[in-house]
Write a protein that binds this DNA or RNA. Structure first.
Length: 140
DNA sequence: AAACGCGACAACCGCTCCTTG
DNA sequence: ACAAGGAGCGGTTGTCGCGTT
């Protein structure tokens, strides 16, 4: 299937979001709700592509979002879910209320992977295979 | 005090999946 | 049934701040 590129660099702004842009996006979604991401930036007066708006909303602006301070409990859950699901970050995020796939993915790639590999090096016999026995809590 | 290295995180990009006409 | 467009996902990159030398 041939697809038109949805992301055109054109005149659209890229890079870090400003407080003003955040406010425009937040206010628009608060008063109109989530709708078509493609047309949203135009209606909200943002010079961004819909993709960028979606990412910003999901990973940063959403009111129910928890940021930082991943607890040991959450960390343990992430590890178990990762054993179970692999790199299905959105599925893992779905089991952790208030956490985003991007945050979990970042956390995994920076902290956890390192922790786990060092653990693995220390105790190679203790890896994998038992994951399916571990009950995973389901939120929602 | 400056240079450098590294970790953390936000955002981009390309691809696939899903929905609709 | 098929094609096209929109939405979502996962990998990767860029940047910033902090600690170390």
């Amino acid at each position: 299937m041939v697809r038109k590129k949805s992301y055109t660099k054109g005149n659209l702004k890229r890079g870090a979001w400003t407080a003003h842009e955040d406010k425009l996006l937040y206010d628009y979604i608060m008063s109109h709700g989530l709708g078509k991401w493609r047309s949203l930036p135009i209606k909200a007066g943002l010079n961004r592509c819909g993709k960028s708006c979606r990412l910003r909303w999901l990973n940063y602006l959403r009111p129910d979002i928890k940021r930082g301070n991943i607890t040991e409990e959450e960390e343990d859950l992430i590890v178990r879910l990762h054993k179970l699901l692999g790199n299905r970050w959105s599925l893992i995020a779905g089991r952790l209320p208030g956490r985003t796939d991007n945050e979990i993915k970042n956390y995994w790639n920076t902290c956890l992977r390192k922790k786990l590999t060092s653990k693995t090096l220390l105790s190679p016999a203790d890896t994998g295979t038992k994951s399916n026995d571990i009950p995973v809590p389901i939120f929602n």
